[in-house]
Amino acid sequence: MNVSVSQGEGGSAVPVAGERVTVATSVGDARVTWARAKRPRLVLALGHGAGGGIEARDLVALAEVLPAGGVSVALVEQPWRVAGKKVAPAPKTLDTGWRAVWPELTRAGLPVVAGGRSAGARVVCRTGYELGARGVLALSFPLHPPGRPERSRAEELLGTGLPTLVVQGGRDPFGRPEEFPAGSHGLAEVAYGDHGFAVPKKAPVTQEEALGVITDTVGAWLERLPAD
């Protein structure tokens, strides 16, 4: 499936319009932007990374495509982004903000898959099991800092205790697909994609095709998740 999204500053996609809910947390107000399915069967909650917000091209593509298949998508903005800060706080603070948003995500009584990109992927890997998530979706999981493979964060990914899917760009400096350890998680590659899933203009795939790989792969994985 090809996905076309409007482009904002820096190549990031403009976030989809939807119902917005402010959630008070102990570390400030978080915000959830809903892209609701007409007949939802589950919720996919998506957190952003440390270098951007819910305008990331992969998050927007999922929010635009998945509701047609019965998946409501909740784009979660951490309190530091809502407050307009430029630097993300410590991982424990990110986890605190995510936990506080969870009741809003489960309010409809539907199963919730915890997802996120980059730093947001780490958050859901650390917290998904305790919160009762149906599964974990890790987009652009930062396996290690660029050029520092010895500083691996693989234990977070391997310890989710839940069905887990990693979607990784083929040239992601935070960890290429071939660098990931074997485990029970699924691993899908977006060929030529960088950490933001951007593909070079001269690549044999277009940006729309790369986004289509993400939406098709995630949609199919959600269909295969156990019902309970």
Score class of each variant (00 low, 15 high):
L94V: 08
T25M: 03
K86C: 06
V71C: 10
D58E: 13
E77P: 01
G186I: 00
V218W: 14
K202S: 14
L158S: 05
A138G: 07
P181N: 02
H144V: 08
H48Y: 00
R134P: 04
V5F: 03
Q7P: 03
T22P: 02
G69Q: 14
R148P: 07
E156A: 04
G11N: 12
G161A: 11
G109A: 04
A61C: 05
L66K: 10
V14T: 15
A154W: 00
T127A: 11
T206D: 08
V213M: 13
E104R: 14
W34H: 10
P79E: 02
T160D: 02
P146C: 05
F174D: 01
L75W: 04
A50D: 11
T33S: 14
G70Q: 13
G52D: 14
G52N: 14
A88W: 11
E189T: 15
G28Q: 02
P173V: 06
S26K: 15
T160C: 03
P146S: 05
R107F: 01
E156S: 07
R148D: 06
E77L: 15
H48S: 12
D95E: 12
G186Q: 02
G69C: 03
E179K: 01
V43N: 14
A63C: 13
P40W: 00
R39F: 10
A227P: 07
D95C: 07
A74M: 13
T160N: 01
A17T: 12
V14W: 10
G116E: 03
L162A: 05
A108F: 02
V205P: 04
G212Q: 08
V16S: 13
L105H: 08
H185I: 03
H195G: 11
G49N: 02
A220S: 15
G109C: 04
